[in-house]
Amino acid sequence: MAEQALANLHTDSGMHGRKAERFAVNRASRILSINPALSGISIRSCHLLDISRVGATISLVTTIGLSDHYYLNIMGTANRIGCAEIYRNGSRVGVKFIKEIDDELLHTIVRGDFFTAAI
C-alpha cells in the first residue's frame, strides 16, 4: 500500500521540458468557485487522486455547472490552490495549478495521505 501511495508517475510540466513527479493519493478535498457576478461561493466535495507540483487529478460526483477555474482546498491543509481545468473525463477532472505548489506543501499532502491510509 505504501508503494501505491508514493507511486512515481511522471508528467510533463510544460516548463522547459522538465518532468514533475506525480504522487497517487486519496485525500478528501473541496472545490471552491466564485459564483457569477461575485454573488457568493460554491463549494463541492471531491477526492484528490494524484498530485504533482504543477497539477492534480480529482474525482467529483458531478461536473455539471462546474466552471473552468476554481480553488482546490485539500482537507488537512489551510491552502487554497488556484486551478485551471485541462480535461474532463466523466467524473475525473485534470487541473493545472495557476502557480506551482512548493515542495513543503506537496510533502505535507503526500505524507498526510500516507499516514491516514495506514489507519
Rank of each mutant, 00 (worst) to 15 (best):
N26A: 12
E104W: 01
A117H: 14
I34Y: 08
H107R: 14
D12A: 13
A20F: 07
K19V: 05
I41M: 14
G82V: 01
H16V: 05
F115G: 00
T77I: 12
G40Y: 05
M75N: 06
T57M: 14
N35M: 14
V93A: 02
G82L: 11
R53T: 08
R53A: 11
R92E: 14
V110N: 04
G55I: 02
Q4Y: 12
A28S: 05
T57E: 14
T108V: 04
N79M: 07
A78L: 05
L48E: 07
T62M: 00
H69T: 12
R30A: 08
G55D: 06
H10K: 15
F114W: 08
G55E: 07
S52F: 05
M15P: 00
L9T: 09
S59D: 10
D103Y: 02
K19D: 06
Y87H: 11
S13Y: 03
H69G: 04
L72V: 07
M75V: 07
R53V: 03
I43M: 14
V54A: 08
I98P: 00
G90C: 02
C83M: 02
S67N: 11
Y70M: 12
D12P: 01
Q4P: 00
K96C: 06
Y70L: 07
N73C: 09
S42W: 02
A28G: 02
D103N: 11
A24N: 09
A78W: 00
T116A: 11
S42G: 14
I86F: 01
K96Q: 10
F23M: 00
